[in-house]
Amino acid sequence: MVPGGYDAVMEKVGGKVIKFGDNVNTDVIIPGRYLVSIDPQELAKHAFEPLGPEVQKRLWSSQVVVGGRNFGCGSAREQAASCLIGAGIKAVVAKSFARVFFRNCINTGLLVVECPEAAEAVADDGELWIDYASGIAVVHGKEFGFASYPESLRQILEAGGLIPYLAKYVLPQEKALKG
């Protein structure tokens, strides 16, 4: 299994929540000085470092990051998604996302869900579960619907990200055509 990805999408993904406000930017998620690494575990040590060690400790023991509006705004750094995977985060749920961060989540195999109602309803330290196949977010027994991805993006996510997807589906096909 690819870190951050998942084999069966039928199961629910989620757990304990760490909740942030609006406009959380990529310099806060992973400061530029740590981009010398692409190792998710190494990056995870510095995720949310500008917000202090208490926030970091809570991040490492959470499974779901919840944000307000425009989560992940700023840089195109893919490590903003992969550092969360390294920190053990299984899903990011927000009222809305900055576009490059959203892409980076899908492309690194991190479940990313835009669901303003669930992001609003869940408490910091609460629990949130995603039933991805049915497009439902569950907060303490209450269900909130979200729009599921188009098929093409779902395949990337389910493969564990863009690179595993290419390795699994696209490159073998090309080889077969030429072979």
Binding site: I38, E78, V100, R103, N107, T108
Partner: peptide, 8 residues
Amino acid sequence: VGFSEITA
């Protein structure tokens, strides 16, 4: 875009 996308 992210670096994986450039690679792709």
